[in-house]
């Protein structure tokens, strides 16, 4: 039975790889600087669409963490994203006008790139609205983290998305490109997450946070998935299944301890709720490219368009990684 299950997962993984290979023609290299990638480089893979506002701080944050090269697929941006990226010395850019949903939310494009450029490297797979923090991140760059993970015999690292939001109506905030988004979005829900393990791939399924509280109080099952495995010591045959929520081979999903202990983990500070979200939601609602079953999320977008206030008196104000660890949202495990 276990063998059969493993075989089916293997088939599934191969299908993802095949799919990525078939779609390799959809992305066209615009600026290819991958020749500069050193043998020990830490890479970041990103799909973007109209993220000119977020990208300056995004790049700054990950450069500070020690990402050596960014490999970015631009999905038909119209806001100058492409020009911005082409001007960065450590960024290689591909362009595509293919459908985001049809390419498994960008994963088909990235899987192909990762197979070509990621093998042997520690690879981050990110969205432009995700800022990774982990225990000691200000004093220990990603290199220290990945070396520690290797020492521990681990080749994947889990980081849950934490939805950050402002106090007051979303559209009433001001954000300028290059600014730290947390200055505008310092609030989060600290203790309303729901954790379960999905038996098929032994991956976690975490839901909750402010989006579940405000938008999915009637249908909690539809609340967005928050668990991610964004950092992986990549090898050729690997493939993400559903965003970076789950990955194959399934052993890479084992980023948690089942015997009561705590494993080192991080947090992806999710800056989705910058003021532009209101405008973008109107567009997403039309495009229907973000959820597998988009019609079910109409109410969600409709609500977002009204620029709601997500803040509550029980909201928590961000105060650094030690706070996130004390709250039990992430853990340093044995890494002191």
């Amino acid at each position: 039975m276990a063998v059969w299950r493993a075989y089916r997962l293997r088939l599934r993984r191969r299908a993802f790889l095949l799919r990525a290979w078939r779609k390799r023609g959809e992305v066209r290299a615009v600026t290819d600087r991958t020749g500069e990638i050193g043998s020990n480089a830490i890479l970041a893979f990103v799909t973007v669409r109209n993220e000119a506002v977020r990208l300056p701080y995004f790049l700054q944050h990950y450069r500070k963490l020690g990402v050596n090269h960014f490999l970015i697929v631009d999905n038909a941006s119209t806001d100058g994203t492409l020009v911005l990226l082409q001007g960065q010395a450590d960024v290689s850019v591909w362009q595509t006008s293919g459908g985001y949903k049809a390419s498994r939310f960008g994963l088909d494009w990235l899987t192909g790139l990762m197979r070509r450029h990621g093998a042997g490297h520690w690879c981050l797979t990110l969205d432009a609205d995700e800022l990774l923090v982990y225990p000691h991140w200000e004093t220990r760059p990603l290199r220290a983290l990945t070396e520690h993970l290797e020492d521990q015999g681990r080749d994947s690292f889990g980081a849950m998305m934490l939805d950050m939001y402002p106090k007051g109506p979303l559209a009433a905030q001001r954000y300028a490109a290059g600014q730290d988004p947390l200055e505008v979005l310092p609030w989060f829900d600290s203790g309303n997450h729901v954790v379960q393990v999905q038996p098929k791939m032994r991956n976690l399924w975490i839901q909750g946070g402010v989006r579940a509280r405000v938008f999915f109080g009637v249908e909690p099952r539809r609340a967005p998935t928050l668990n991610k495995v964004p950092l992986v010591h990549w090898r050729k045959g690997y493939a993400y299944v559903n965003s970076t929520h789950a990955i194959l081979p399934a052993r890479l999903n084992a980023v948690f301890d089942e015997m009561g202990g705590e494993v080192l983990s991080g947090i992806l500070l999710h800056t989705k709720f910058l003021p532009e979200v209101v405008e973008k939601s109107a567009e997403e609602r039309q495009r229907r490219e973000h959820f597998a079953n988009s019609a079910l999320y109409d109410a969600y977008y409709a609500n977002l368009i009204t620029s709601p206030d997500l803040w509550s008196p029980a909201s928590c104000r961000y105060d650094g990684w030690r706070q996130l660890e004390a709250l039990g949202l992430m853990s340093r495990g044995g890494w002191v």
């Binding site: 889990g158 980081a159 849950m160 997450h193 954790v195 393990v197 976690l204 975490i206 668990n227 980023v255 948690f256 301890d257 089942e258 015997m259 009561g260 202990g261 705590e262 494993v263 080192l264 983990s265 039990g328 949202l329 992430m330 853990s331 340093r332 495990g333 044995g334 890494w335 002191v336």
Partner: peptide, 29 residues
């Protein structure tokens, strides 16, 4: 003290906490 606490955090964790890197199964409480 700091380092023995780290061992405890890694092996025993914080009782009653269920999160992304601590999810004890039935047998382990």
């Amino acid at each position: 003290r700091l380092f023995s606490k780290a061992v405890e955090r890694r092996t025993k964790g914080r009782t009653g906490l269920y999160m992304q890197s601590r999810f004890p199964n039935k047998q382990w409480g």
